[in-house]
Design a protein around this nucleic acid. Structure first.
Lengths: 124, 124
DNA sequence: TTGTTATATACCGATAAGGGAATATACCTC
DNA sequence: GAGGTATATTCCCTTATCGGTATATAACAA
């Protein structure tokens, strides 16, 4: 995995949003769908892309997949994720995503997805 | 110019090499050709891409074009260029480029291009 | 003017990227 | 087993990217 591959992962807005969310902790696919408000295929394909390039790791838990940032990121990846975290502050989309994620995590009514209402059961 | 556009510029190896060279100062196109050992079209087109996205600035000087990093880079760009400078250390291509550029700048025989032998005349 | 050097552009082909619709797989529950 | 939920994959289309060959432009020099 070289530097170019990292930037190739970072050069799509959806993937940036995904990585930004992961900076605050592991998430399952339905979280992403809900927070990003993007269709399941789209999310799934971008996650696959990130995974194939070593930018995220995945683990099955019951019938859902939990995605997280690599436990041992390379120096290059670490540097770029830190840089990303600085840069996203300036853009609205990312702040909105963060706000929606917070809402989900805080728990909001009976219509929020199971994996959010019952994190223990959903392993995340 | 948003974050995605920056990463789109960074996700090609030739453009990374160009930006890396620019981190050590302005250069004209023939420098790039020589150091990168890439054909003129290729260099020119990547420079155009970078310019259109605000990652480099250009100025004509006599019959050559001098490219440089923006005088007033955005916070996002500044952060990413700093990150880039850290990351390139790990990869051979960049070190080799730097070595070739140094050779050129130190002046090497009568077969080096005019714009390198006579920097004053070439405004760089 | 003509020629020369430096750089840019147009055009073409090959490949990759990104998105959606439909379908498949994996796991759970009953 | 059947049915449900969560996620992945396949197929198809559209558009972007990258590279090369050939040609055009800009500025200088004689």
């Amino acid at each position: 995995m070289d530097l170019v591959a990292i930037y190739q992962c970072l050069c799509d807005r959806t993937r940036l949003r995904i990585l930004h969310l992961l900076l605050s902790g592991p998430l399952c696919v339905c979280h992403f769908q809900d927070v990003l408000r993007e269709p399941q295929v789209k999310v799934s394909k971008h996650l696959r892309y990130l995974r194939e390039n070593g930018l995220v790791e995945a683990e099955r838990c019951a019938n859902m997949m939990i995605y997280r940032l690599p436990a041992k990121p390379s120096a290059q990846l670490k540097a770029n994720l830190a840089c990303l975290q600085d840069c996203v502050r300036e853009e609205k989309v990312f702040r909105e995503d963060a706000a929606r994620l917070k809402k989900l995590r805080d728990g909001f009514g009976p219509d929020t997805p199971t994996c959010v209402r019952e994190p223990a059961k959903a392993c995340c």
